[in-house]
Design a protein around this nucleic acid. Sequence first.
DNA 1: AATGCGTCCAACCGCTGCGTT
DNA 2: GAACGCAGCGGTTGGACGCAT
Length: 250
Amino acid sequence: MMQDENRKGPWTEQEDILLVNFVNLFGDRRWDYIAKVSGLNRTGKSCRLRWVNYLHPGLKRGKMTQQEERLVLELHAKWGNRWSKIARKLPGRTDNEIKNYWRTHMRKKAQEKKRPVSPTSSFSNYSSSSMTTTTQETSCHSRKSSGKVSFYDTGGSSREMNQETEDGYSMDDIWREIDHSEVNMIKPVKDIYTEQSYCLSYPNLASQSWDQSSLDSIWNIDADKSKMSSFESDQFPFCFQHSRSPWSSG
DNA sequence: AATGCGTCCAACCGCTGCGTT
DNA sequence: GAACGCAGCGGTTGGACGCAT
């Protein structure tokens, strides 16, 4: 039977710490398992999302650079709302982030369009050809079975149009890439909490991308158990900070 | 100083795809 | 090959924050 309802809503610091540690122990694949054993009382889905969008050490925070913006536009013109795919080309950015970014900017754009003339709009200048089409298409593409139409759905590509394919790698690989090669570029951690951007720092985690040997044991349930037993929730191997979180006030 | 509005962002929901049995 | 479960993806929502009035 269901024990108690799964928790929803904003994550607490405790939960974050717990999740990070369990991901550290068991890897970032077995979300249901992690959700269960961690006692987080969250769904695996929720755990995954939290990790991918917020806790992952490779995440880059703060404003998009112009280069990134341009890339997003370019790729969106090419692939449509394939956010995860686009995100793969922007190390350290999540699909959610890009989606949000796009949404905000498309809304702006849409509003500008309502007005008679829109003289400025820096980014519309930039890929004018692709952008004009995509923005216009917004109203004529439906999405999925729901048939709902999203105002920013360019319909540029749906799942069918996957022939583009698939650079063959997953978010995991991306993160690995980030860890290994983009480190110089990203530099996420430090005292940036004081600035608008913020990051988490997991020294252990970041350096410990899941290599094969550790994976071997990670997938071993017995090993899991021993990990479990050696893990005490109040002796975390590392610490991190939050900012701008509901529970970080004070 | 108070209020309204717009923007940003975290998180949830529903659906799809894929692997396993 | 069908059924099932899980992970991942895209869409949507709601709250916090910042700026303008």
